[in-house]
């Protein structure tokens, strides 16, 4: 509980002021979303007609679902949607295992060089992806991969145009490891020492001691990595020229390319955003509690 807290001591007027403030802020935070949603049901003319009033954020006047019909009817949005779901879930799923294991090793096991690795991690956090995207492209263009040719599984000369080129490079993530590492370090050592005395192996300690008491940080990492993957744009544009492995964000670019029907763009943007928002609203109690419980306290 905080400074603004504890019902007993709060005066009615303070309480009222806080409510007013919260609602006002809620408006500030939700209005671009409302704008997007409302505009997605309007023609350009309607969007401009309403831009000056509260009507920009409230679905009034002439509304149309034509934008959605157009977006869903042109291009393979459902296919792209499925691609994005696969890319996001696989990256997050693999990432949770790989990164938490690494953090476990760094935080809970004794080995030479682990401190050096831990401080290297902090440095790696600073490398912006944009800075390495071209060299990484040069690299994956030459990595042998697997693909289909004429119905047979064959070894291909590169990773281009695949779903896994959008997944594998992002599984190991310095920031995720850093978050896990911070959290694991805060778990009392007595827990695993007791388990070791009972004859547990390190991996058993990881599975039965560390993971069960770290659900919050798993949730945090899932949210962060999931959002990053869902919204990824630059990388797939470079490495996935074909349509078959194209993700949703790149699909949307197709609409910016040759339309200024804001309604279409907003409809596409809404289709991208709503699933994530829905997932958050459904799981939000769990999310929030998890993040609150997680060790991202520094």
């Amino acid at each position: 509980m905080s400074v603004l807290s504890t019902g007993r001591h709060q005066s009615v007027s303070l309480r009222f002021a806080l409510y007013a403030l919260m609602l006002l802020l809620a408006l500030v935070f939700v209005f671009p979303f409302l704008f997007m949603l409302t505009a997605s049901f309007r023609t350009n003319e309607q969007i401009f007609a309403h831009s000056g009033s509260i009507g920009a954020f409230v679905p009034t006047g002439e509304l149309t679902t034509a934008n959605y019909a157009y977006v869903l009817g042109n291009g393979n949005i459902l296919h792209f949607f499925l691609n994005s779901v696969i890319i996001t879930t696989l990256t997050v799923g693999l990432g949770l295992i790989v990164n938490s294991l690494a953090a476990f090793s760094l935080a809970r096991l004794q080995w030479r060089g682990r401190e050096a690795v831990a401080s290297l991690l902090v440095v790696l956090l600073v490398i912006p992806f944009e800075a390495i995207s071209v060299p990484l492209m040069l690299l994956v263009a030459h990595l042998p991969g697997l693909g289909f040719e004429a119905g047979r599984l064959v070894l291909t000369r590169s990773w281009l145009n695949t779903l896994y080129v959008q997944i594998l490079p992002f599984v190991a993530n310095a920031f995720s490891i850093y978050l896990f590492y911070q959290f694991f370090r805060s778990i009392p050592k007595d827990f695993d020492e007791a388990a070791y005395i009972d004859g547990a192996t390190p991996l058993q300690v990881y599975r039965h001691v560390i993971v069960p008491s770290s659900k919050p940080v798993f949730a945090t990492v899932s949210i962060l990595q999931g959002l990053a993957m869902w919204n990824q744009y630059l990388w797939p544009v470079i490495t996935v020229p074909g349509e078959s492995a194209r993700p949703l964000m790149v699909g949307m670019q197709q609409f910016f390319g040759h339309t200024t029907e804001w309604g279409n763009v907003m409809a596409y943007a809404t289709i991208i955003t709503v699933p994530v928002l829905a997932a958050f609203v459904i799981f939000q109690r769990w999310f929030v509690r998890s993040v609150i419980g997680s060790g991202v306290k520094g």
Partner: peptide
Amino acid sequence: LVNAGLRGQTFLRAVYFSPVVMSMVVVSIV
């Protein structure tokens, strides 16, 4: 604010969090 023990704060947490889930490209365009 959302820790002050007021009613509806769980919902408002979601509202305040909602821009985070929007893609930066989309947010920038809006």
